[in-house]
């Protein structure tokens, strides 16, 4: 419990500090709020799922329990992470407006961009913890079914990194939509982008196969505008022990960072014009 006497110097510190400290303070609070809101409770379900899979899947899979544990574990990681990104992400801004705490925040020298970036980093931190614990769970399940060290327990981590990068992009999209739209609509739109993002190769082939120049340009535009999330799908290959090369990971990392920067910039542009009266 933070008392007024200890909080005051800290507030003073924030008032006189630079944007990094202010962003970090918002991020930390967003992380705490997510933990308080029992967002990490999904881990219980995940552990239950993996335990059941580790114990029973051997009976059903014809000796393929290791592959199925990786497929199931990493798919659940992506699915649960996507749900957190979408449903917590769209509420990041809305909750502050609804509870009117946003007035208290903006009465201090906190920029709207700083607020959004702080919120984004807070949720990213929550997702990082979530993904790390889930990755550890999958590794332990593999060690359990293999009755000893399993090379897959190490090689899956490259796929975990790619899943996390995908979730970072998805969180950015949720935040962008929530900066100007209602939570329900934002969630729906983010979900659509998640689906279309996995169909991006189809958009490209569609643009190449169409006769009309305008339609070709439209689909080519959509291909480059929407995030190419299929590049982050490495779950199936990870289940066969394949590891993406360093160049693929670094290119995908660069793509995610640039794309997130664009999303946050666009969200800030919109959010700066928003009137809370």
């Amino acid at each position: 419990m933070e008392t007024a006497t200890t909080a005051l110097p800290r507030q003073q510190e924030y008032l006189t500090s630079g944007p990094v400290v202010r962003i970090w303070a918002i991020a930390r609070n967003t992380f705490r709020e997510a933990v308080r809101d029992r967002v990490l409770y999904n881990l219980v379900l995940f552990v239950l799922l993996l335990t059941l899979a580790a114990v029973f899947i051997g009976e059903l899979s014809g000796g393929q329990e290791r592959k199925i544990i990786v497929d199931l574990g990493l798919s659940a990681m992506l699915l649960f992470g996507a749900f957190i990104s979408i449903f917590v992400g769209v509420g990041l801004v809305f909750k502050e407006i609804e509870r009117r705490t946003i007035y208290a925040i903006f009465s201090k020298p906190v920029g709207r961009g700083e607020f959004l970036v702080g919120k984004y980093l807070g949720l990213s931190l929550t997702l990082l913890l979530n993904v790390l614990i889930m990755g550890l769970g999958v590794s332990l399940a593999l060690v359990y079914v293999s009755e000893g060290w399993d090379p897959l327990a190490g090689t899956i981590w490259a796929a975990v990194v790619l899943i996390y990068l995908e979730l970072l992009i998805l969180t950015g999209i949720a935040l962008l939509f929530s900066s100007f739209s209602s939570p329900a609509l934002s969630a729906l739109l983010t979900f659509f982008v998640f689906i279309i993002g996995h169909f991006s190769s189809d958009l490209k082939s569609l643009s190449n196969s169409l006769g009309s120049t305008a339609a070709r340009w439209l689909f080519a535009g959509l291909y480059y505008l929407l995030p190419n999330l299929s590049n982050y799908s490495f779950i199936t290959r990870a289940a066969h022990g394949q590891v993406p090369d360093a160049q693929t990971v670094s290119m995908n990392l660069a793509y995610a960072l640039v794309y997130v920067a664009v999303l946050l910039a666009a969200a800030t542009l919109i959010f700066r014009r928003r009137n809370f009266k």
Partner: peptide, 21 residues
């Protein structure tokens, strides 16, 4: 394959187990 999005490995496991069953 198209409909399974990023979950094609899991869907393949499902069809494999269905074959065995």
């Amino acid at each position: 394959r198209r409909m399974s999005l990023a979950f094609n490995g899991l869907a393949a496991d499902w069809y494999w187990m269905r074959s065995l069953q």
